[in-house]
Nucleic acid binder design. Structure first.
Lengths: 153, 153
DNA sequence: ACCAGTTATTAGGACAACCTATTATTTGAA
DNA sequence: TTCAAATAATAGGTTGTCCTAATAACTGGT
């Protein structure tokens, strides 16, 4: 099985490729806040596992398998971040926390997070729902206390 | 700062005390799925940090500080688990995933998770909301498509 | 075509958390 | 009370990830 850290590296590599088309050790190093030797070490390991193609001084590429995993991780990341933003966690924190959470979660959990995000976002009353949630966060009270007892969704 | 693992141990110790009033190495070992030597090692470390009082062959107790931290971790755990259950993650998975998630999250994120849980649970239309979410999970459709456009929450 | 500055790699260690095998201590049943 | 079984502690290793310091390889401006 793949370690959390390995997944972090794959995701970072994918993001860097998407941004600038190629990957250098220093990019990964900066992106994950580790020193270059740590990156090189991990690249060797990922290469050994067939997840990247790594040639010294000559760049890194994701293999098909590595790409697949990186995409899966990123997908989780996005689901979690969307959720965090819906519940009004500030962007910067949402980004950081998504990184923390995204590993090791059961696929079922991710499925349900995604479902929640979609449920809320596609709801016919979406803007209201959000407004009400925000009001609740501020005041601790529901906008419609009594009268709305039979309202839907 | 305290490592994630250290927090896991503190939380486990708290839970075991709550269940049976005292803690033995083997309980912690079973609870965290590690071998006894790992427990002893960590107990020494926690003792050194003033989070537990540990005497060989003579039990473990949380210090005030350790107790405080353990409670905080447990509180996070509960918030996350409540949320997971609301979005219909099966109980067993929710429990496991809460353990995975509970560390390192920003306090703001936890606050918002709690807010969501409370918002939904105390909503005047709580049972409906859940039913609608479940229907959405199954069918991908909102119960009330057009007609309810101005409904609240 | 050179070499200074940048980037990458290697060598060698630190550290946290875990393990197995061994040894010591405690405890309860005969 | 004794001693066998249960429990706990120690000794010594392994693994994964990170680091610093030293070395090597690349690259662009002259």
């Amino acid at each position: 099985m793949l370690s959390r850290k390995a997944e972090d590296y794959l995701e970072a590599i994918l993001n860097i490729i998407d941004e600038q088309g190629y990957v250098r050790v220093k990019n990964v190093s900066a992106s994950l806040n580790v020193k270059p030797p740590s990156v090189v070490e991990m690249l060797k390991k990922l290469d050994k596992h067939g997840l990247v193609r790594y040639e010294k001084h000559n760049g890194v590429k994701l293999t098909e398998k590595g790409h697949e995993i990186a995409l899966a991780v990123k997908d989780k990341h996005n689901a979690i971040k969307s959720f965090l933003k819906i519940i009004r966690v500030p962007d910067k924190i949402a980004e950081r926390d998504a990184c923390i959470i995204e590993h090791g979660l059961d696929p079922k959990t991710i499925t349900q997070v995604k479902a929640l995000v979609e449920f809320v976002e596609t709801s016919p009353v979406y803007p209201d729902w959000l407004k009400h949630f925000e009001t609740f966060c501020e005041t601790g009270k529901h906008v419609c206390e009594k009268k709305d007892h039979n309202r839907k969704n």
